[in-house]
């Protein structure tokens, strides 16, 4: 079937070529594009979208979807800011500050864990399509966040966070290292553990996986919990970059994460996809965005171009088997 073809492996070659072509084109046409400053702004902008995409990609591989990732991230960030804002007074010592920060981190982690467990349980045990479950949880989580904050942004986090945003190692921002670490971790979990392999199997055929004595329900609960826990890291990055939290930050990223995943070769129906492909796709999207920004084009036009690139890449991926098939039959006849 056609749907099997979109996620064929080997898409990385095309993506790498596209990335190289874009880099070449931008460095030719945009002055100073290949500078350390561009590279650094690139590394500051990518982590949030990257972590959110990582949260999306694991459910996608199992044939599901988690529409609640941004709601989860925002609520987690809000909770952490609220705890730090209310419990740290101006004259608090370093000890109490550190204690409250630890408390906030634990609270955020627990919140994400609970959201993930509930989502996973609903998906696994009711059999309702994940789009609907997560649409419901997204609406619920967003609703609670907006209701409690009245749509206002919360700020007032300790300086440690602000400083963590500008920490660099040999010029590489800390948050970018966090993204790379998470990508490697999730990549290893997906490729090297029994849990990860079960994810791919569920995405290909959930019935067959269950008959292979794999507890698909437990794996699904794990998948949505993992997605939610990735949101915790995303919430930390969000706090560090924005220095505040709100219920409607990053809402436009939701569809972009799906776009990035599919561009990176993840099959929207599940079963295929790699973290490496996702990272390449993210790099492509970010380079287009920075490049056009330096051209002075509007943000809206960038999103339109992202959409066009998605259609173009998927088109190439679907048409490739046809071409190779044609070439093969030709050469077969030649023999």
């Amino acid at each position: 079937m056609a749907r099997l073809r979109t996620g064929l492996p080997g898409g990385h070659l095309g993506l790498t070529t596209l990335l190289a072509a874009l880099l070449l084109a931008f460095s030719l046409f945009v002055p100073d594009f290949l500078s350390a400053a561009t590279l650094q702004s690139f590394m500051y902008q990518l982590p949030l979208l990257g972590l959110l995409s990582l949260a999306m990609v694991v459910p996608l591989i199992t044939g599901g979807l988690n529409l609640a990732i941004i709601a989860t991230t925002n609520q987690c960030a809000l909770l952490m800011v609220w705890i730090m804002q209310t419990m740290i007074s101006a004259d608090a010592g370093a000890g109490t500050t550190a204690g409250v920060i630890m408390l906030a981190l634990v609270a955020g982690l627990v919140l994400c864990l609970v959201i993930g467990l509930i989502t996973g349980t609903l998906v696994a045990y009711t059999g309702v399509h994940p789009i609907l479950v997560t649409l419901g949880t997204k609406s619920l989580i967003d609703g609670i966040s907006i209701y409690l904050t009245r749509g206002m942004a919360l700020s007032g986090i300790p300086e440690v966070f602000t400083r963590a945003g500008s920490v660099t190692f040999f010029g590489v921002p800390l948050i970018f290292i966090v993204l790379i670490a998470m990508a490697i971790l999730i990549g290893i979990i997906l490729k090297r553990t029994a849990f990860g392999i079960s994810c791919f199997m569920i995405g290909s055929n959930i019935q067959a996986t269950r008959y292979s004595t794999i507890d698909t329900r437990r794996v699904l609960v794990g998948v949505y919990t993992m997605s939610s826990l990735t949101c915790f890291i995303a919430a930390l990055v969000m706090l560090v970059t924005f220095n505040s939290a709100s219920a409607d930050y990053a809402q436009s990223y939701l569809l972009v994460t799906i776009l990035a995943a599919v561009l990176g070769g993840v099959d929207p129906f599940g079963g295929f996809g790699t973290v490496g492909g996702l990272m390449l796709a993210l790099a492509i999207l970010q380079i287009i965005s920075s490049g056009f920004n330096q051209f002075g084009l509007s943000n809206y036009l960038t999103i339109a171009i992202w959409g066009a690139i998605l259609i173009f890449v998927v088109m190439l991926q679907t048409l490739k088997p046809h071409f190779t098939h044609l070439l093969q039959t030709r050469s077969d006849r030649g023999k």
Partner: peptide, 18 residues
């Protein structure tokens, strides 16, 4: 072009709305 419907329409949405 055989693009999955959800992907095609997400792409079309971002293109036409942007």
């Amino acid at each position: 072009v055989r693009i999955t419907s959800i992907i095609a329409t997400i792409a079309m949405m971002s293109i036409s709305f942007s």
